[in-house]
């Protein structure tokens, strides 16, 4: 937990299309759209399924498990508000349900991160309104 009233990093500007996602993370659930027509999940949430373009979508809680598809270690921060975190890991997770999701890997050893590592979601309540779905390494 890093709940902090003075969180200065960027927070999502939530819109009607993304509110269910962020409402779920606040409740420590990872919920993403699934298409009733083709059966595939997608992320980030859209109005139409990006695979088959059906509008018949439903929000579904997913496992929060996946593997690292790619990652980078930021040696320079994305602006001054991230400076204290350097070096930090930005990873693209392939969720077990299919979609990819950009996130941070929470780890004390950034050098140990590898493509293919199994990961599990880790909810970080950065403000009373916003919870970011970060991930931790299963091997730790």
């Amino acid at each position: 937990m890093s709940e902090n009233a003075t969180y200065e990093k960027p927070v999502p500007v939530i819109d009607p299309g993304t509110k269910p996602f962020w409402d779920a993370t606040r409740e420590h659930r990872l919920s993403i759209p699934r298409c009733r027509s083709c059966g595939k999940h997608h992320f980030y949430p859209r109005e139409l399924c990006p695979h088959c373009h059906s509008a018949d979508l439903e929000w579904t809680d997913v496992s929060g498990k996946g593997e690292i598809y790619s990652y980078t270690i930021a040696r320079k921060p994305a602006g001054p508000v991230f400076a204290a975190d350097v070096p930090y890991v930005i990873a693209m997770i392939a969720l077990d349900e299919g979609p990819r999701m950009l996130t941070n890997i929470v780890t004390a050893d950034v050098e140990a991160v590898r493509i293919g590592d199994r990961v599990t979601v880790h909810f970080d309540d950065v403000t009373p309104e916003i919870t970011l779905p970060k991930f931790t390494l299963d091997k730790a």
Binding site: K9, P10, V13, F43, Y44, A74, Y88, I90, M101
Partner: peptide
């Protein structure tokens, strides 16, 4: 390297501090 607003698609990208 930063400073893009976290709106629309970017709410799923720059909250992670990706340069």
């Amino acid at each position: 390297l930063g400073g893009r607003p976290s709106i629309l698609t970017m709410q799923f990208e720059n909250v992670w501090g990706i340069p």
